[in-house]
Design a protein around this nucleic acid. Structure first.
Length: 489
DNA sequence: TTTTGAGTTGTTCGA
DNA sequence: GTCGAACAACTCAAA
């Protein structure tokens, strides 16, 4: 992504200063979740400030009620991110303990065995996660352990922004206006210094034993070539974006044939960088054009979490119940073609292949691919959401379903029903030379620009075996419009 | 309480 | 080739 030749202007962290070891003192446990960073981490900061040895723990919880299992791409990312986090914590004198199982049992066991007198963590906002955290807090408090939680992963706690009427914001513009006028986000916390070394013999799972990495087949080669999970990779990615691409962001952000977007989404997803850090770094670029546009993307992330907090069923239930009557088609062949990048529409297929290879898809192409599944194939948005959940490295519990519902028209502030993307026009408009589709679809790499987004018009030869369109867009569009008409009362 | 303006990302058709 | 209107109504948020 052209990041080798730039120097991020974000200062690197100071070296930790170890304190003298002490024996027999109580420790503080920091429970890491979607906040795999040591800088601007309020829970870690508070634990270090207590002046006792600190023990970090990550719990792979696949059993607690309602916790959504991680997708395959996310498991790959988690493995590498935990590895990096462990390294950085070790430099601070903090061991990272890995436990697998229900969070409640894992935490109470760890607290008991270490004799910890306090536990800290940064808040989560999904309903199942909140239920787990509440149960853990109650159990620990009942046994005399001090528990403290912090705001770390959103600029605004979801219950703090409220419209003058109604329970919560449902329109982005109003939400973001209120957010921005509520005062500037706090500055990021500095990286903590060293702590008293903790006992290193606390039993921990081995990361390898969790088997988060794909085997037989190992499909992660493209992911490894694209990403550097971890706090350092996050800082470098953001720095490169701000230095190189922010000035042209407004103009080029919709162009998948340019690397003009930040690609910090997976780092934010795993909390390797905080929105407070992103905010401060972007604003430090002064009033460069593109800053507000970029910050509003952070705003959409905030809005999605706001929606999830107030609508726990976001990933499974139409926000607009009228869509419960929508006549979704049961089309396994269509779904298969879409997932495999074989719909016959180059811009859709290029996106789906980019997703499969790298765990990421350009935002503009996500909209086109989602619109195609929902409107051209009339396949339930939940099927698409599930696929993205499994294959995206940046899928989070709020952004992914909120965005799918937005495209479907069933969500908050949603696209109007008549907005049906024409994959040919979108391809011509946002990939005018065809560089993006050629990169991901070698079958059509040699077609002239005039045909590269409409390979079915090729009369000589067979476009290298590239499939014919699975549906005729004009026909499919008509069909979708008729279906939407049926939703009226 | 009522009113009013507005609402991320588009396409097609006809003049 | 360009441009404006139509495409549905509805809900939200603030005055």
């Amino acid at each position: 992504m052209g990041c080798d030749d730039c120097n991020p202007q974000i200062p690197s962290d100071p070296m930790p200063v170890p304190s003298p070891a002490s024996i027999g003192r109580t420790c503080t446990v920091v429970w890491f979740r979607d906040d795999l960073r040591i800088s601007d981490n309020p829970a870690l900061d508070a634990a270090v400030r207590r002046g006792r040895p600190v023990v970090a723990v990550y719990v792979l919880d696949e059993t607690s009620d309602g916790i959504r299992p991680l997708g395959g791409a996310a498991r790959w990312w988690l493995h590498h991110s935990l590895g990096r986090l462990g390294d950085r914590l070790r430099e601070l004198g903090v061991p990272l303990v890995l436990r697998r199982g229900a969070a409640l049992a894992s935490l109470t066991d760890l607290v008991k065995s270490t004799g910890a007198t306090a536990v800290t963590w940064n808040r989560r906002y999904g309903s199942a996660e909140i239920a787990v955290d509440t149960a853990v807090k109650t159990a620990l408090a009942n046994s005399g352990v001090q528990v403290e939680s912090f705001a770390a992963n959103l600029l605004h706690e979801p219950w703090t922004l409220k419209p003058t009427s109604g329970p919560h914001y449902k329109v982005f513009t109003a939400f973001w206006k209120a957010a921005r006028s509520s005062g500037p986000p706090r500055p990021p916390l500095p990286t903590p210094g060293g702590t008293e070394p903790a006992d290193r013999d606390i039993p921990s799972d081995a990361l390898e034993d969790w088997q988060l990495l794909p085997r037989q087949p190992d499909w992660s080669t493209g992911l490894a070539a694209t990403w550097t999970p971890g706090e350092d990779g996050a800082r470098e990615r953001l720095g490169c974006f701000l230095d190189q691409d922010l000035p042209g962001y407004t103009r080029l952000r919709d162009r998948p044939d340019h690397a003009a977007t930040s690609m910090v989404s997976p780092h934010l997803r795993f909390g390797e960088i905080s929105p407070f850090q992103v905010w401060q770094a972007a604003l430090a670029r002064g009033d460069e054009s593109g800053v507000d546009k970029f910050l509003s993307e952070i705003g959409w992330r905030e809005f999605s979490w706001h929606l999830l907090f107030h609508n726990p069923g976001l990933a499974s239930t139409n926000l607009n119940p009228r869509f419960d009557r929508f006549p979704w088609r049961d089309d396994d062949d269509g779904l298969d073609a879409w997932q495999g990048g074989r719909t016959g529409y180059p811009i859709v297929d290029a996106g789906m292949r980019q997703l499969w290879t790298t765990g990421w898809m350009h935002n503009r192409v996500r909209m086109i691919a989602a619109s195609f599944l929902i409107k051209d194939l009339m396949i339930d948005w939940r099927r698409g959401e599930a696929w993205f959940w499994d294959t995206l490295v940046d899928a989070d519990a709020a952004n992914n379903p909120a965005s799918w519902q937005w495209v479907a028209g069933s969500g908050a502030d949603a696209a109007p029903f008549f907005r049906i993307f024409n994959p040919t026009l979108q391809g011509r408009k946002f990939d005018p030379n065809g560089a993006y589709v050629r990169r991901w679809i070698p079958e059509i790499a040699d077609l002239p620009v005039s045909l590269v987004h409409e390979p079915w018009k090729v009369t000589t030869g067979d476009a290298g075996g590239y499939p014919a369109p699975v549906v005729d867009h004009a026909v499919a569009r008509r069909r979708a419009l008729d279906a939407f008409k049926g939703l009226k009362d």
